[in-house]
């Protein structure tokens, strides 16, 4: 399948990218690794008039110690995440989830920022960000703002990023040795999760679900249950509360709700051990 024509703009800096976005408005799309966008473009499900390529902004590729958090450049590739010693020590859930994205070729090209900004509820990394209580830095014409993960994912393939904003950094609070688990259930390793559950325990336990609603989401009921000392099984029992899972060949609502309970329970148990 062949993408429709577009105008290609290479951004030499984050500011240049923001300027290009400002100039072209909703005609424009950012191109990072391209592994979320290009597949849509090949089916002409996305036909942006202008692509602003930020793939060469190497200064947005880093994993730094930010004191109480790890700061990750938006253009950091999944491969860099899954092999990072710093993440192994301070944010092992994110490191592991990055290793579960797609396949090696996808992980060599795909970027953390690109994956999060795509806002796909079936995607792995948004769940990690939610479970870890992370936030993102958005840069626009008016400067930078920090958006928490909870506020970031607003709907199906929609985020709080403005049309003229660029996601520049992801901030993950240090996990401090908290137990964690990522449970991804799919039919083939390369496939999207039918349902997934990201769990991180510790002072602020987080449980997030993959593919259980229009947007990446937390399992708030489970988190509350853990906080109140419920067993894994009891906490997991409410995993599907308030979800609106999609219906497709792989699963209907009831099956996905069941999977959410199973995976959350497994995740909680694994995270506790």
């Amino acid at each position: 399948m062949i993408p429709a024509s577009f105008e290609y703009v290479e951004a030499a800096s984050a500011d240049a990218a923001i300027a290009a976005l400002t100039e072209h408005g909703d005609e424009a799309k950012l191109l990072a690794g391209g592994h979320s966008l290009i597949p849509l473009m090949r089916f002409r499900l996305a036909t942006p008039g202008v692509l602003v390529d930020i793939g060469r902004l190497d200064d947005l590729s880093y994993i730094n110690d930010g004191g109480d958090h790890i700061a990750i450049g938006a253009l950091t590739r999944h491969r860099a995440l899954e092999t990072s010693d710093m993440l192994a020590a301070e944010a092992p859930l994110l490191r592991h989830v990055a290793s579960q994205v797609g396949d090696p070729q996808v992980r060599h090209r795909g970027t953390l920022g690109g994956s999060l900004a795509h806002g796909d509820p079936a995607s792995d990394l948004p769940a990690a960000l939610l479970a870890m209580g992370g936030s993102v830095v958005a840069k626009g014409p008016g400067g930078e703002r920090v958006i928490t993960a909870d506020d970031f994912f607003t709907g199906f393939l929609e985020t709080a990023l403005g049309e003229d904003e660029l996601l520049t950094e992801i901030r993950i609070p240090k996990a401090g040795g908290a137990g964690w688990s990522y449970q991804k259930f799919n039919r083939r390793a390369q496939d999207w999760a039918i349902v997934g559950a990201a769990v991180q325990l510790g002072a602020n336990p987080g449980v997030a679900l993959v593919n259980m609603g229009p947007a990446p989401m937390r399992a708030g009921g489970v988190e509350a249950a853990i906080a109140s000392g419920s067993s894994a099984a009891d906490a997991a029992a409410v995993a599907a509360a308030g979800t609106e899972p999609p219906v497709d060949l792989n699963g209907d609502e009831a099956y996905r709700a069941h999977l959410a309970r199973v995976l959350v329970e497994r995740g909680l148990i694994e995270a506790q051990t």
Partner: peptide, 15 residues
């Protein structure tokens, strides 16, 4: 409803 290799699941090495 599943014409592509994303939805028509040809077995991969891991299965």
């Amino acid at each position: 409803t599943n014409p592509s290799f994303m939805d028509y699941l040809v077995p991969s090495p891991t299965e």
